[in-house]
């Protein structure tokens, strides 16, 4: 028997929001989340009971993120040239601007591979199915992304951890 969709929102909503934020940044993440869950609730009654809900949602989110990116590209002013606005709530913990700057600088494939593997927990073969190519290629994309982030993102947790130890 299928669970009430509300439980799906509770259990996976925060994960999908992280993925959308990592892939699209603060402006468009919430639109992609909304499109993802609207599409998901529509299709939910037909989802096979044995389906992996996480992979299913990330697949939808992946497609919706592409739609949102295309829509953004059609805007008169490319979003890349806009100054980065803070999250809509204005709370600093909503979004770390430095992390987004570093993620944004990655090739889209690497950013997606990092988000789908490290935030959604998808295995590389599932990520390969989304991005095309082999599981090994997906693994390399994620590894390359992480490697670059370590050098470009000032909030590198190695530093943070050392600071914590020093306290």
């Amino acid at each position: 028997m299928r669970r009430p969709f509300e439980q799906i929102v509770t259990e996976y909503g925060p994960m999908v929001l992280r993925v959308c934020r990592a892939v699209l940044g603060p402006h468009d993440a919430e639109d992609a989340w909304s499109e993802t869950f609207l599409s998901a609730i529509k299709a939910y009654p037909d989802l096979p009971p044995e389906a992996n809900v996480e992979a299913w949602l990330v697949t939808i989110a992946h497609r919706k993120a592409i739609d949102v990116t295309r829509a953004a590209a059609r805007r008169p002013t490319p979003v890349e040239t806009l100054p980065d606005r803070p999250a809509r709530t204005g709370r600093p913990e909503d979004w770390d601007g430095d992390l987004w700057q570093a993620l944004k600088a990655l090739p889209a494939r690497q950013r997606q591979a990092v988000a789908y593997h490290y935030l959604a927990g998808l295995p590389y073969k599932d990520i390969a199915a989304l991005l095309g190519g082999t599981a090994d290629a997906a693994r390399r994309a994620a590894a390359d992304g992480i490697k670059t982030l370590r050098t470009t993102y000032p909030g590198d947790p190695v530093d943070t951890e050392q600071k914590e130890v020093a306290r």
């Binding site: 925060p14 990592a22 050392q162």
Partner: peptide, 29 residues
């Protein structure tokens, strides 16, 4: 310390206000 997941720790795992906003929007849509 080198766990790649921690590299992304600045992305909040739980963001209550955002989720509340998104849930309301989903229900309306």
């Amino acid at each position: 310390p080198s766990d790649p997941g921690r590299l992304l720790a600045a992305l909040p795992a739980q963001d209550g206000p955002a989720m509340a906003r998104l849930r309301e929007r989903l229900a309306d849509q």
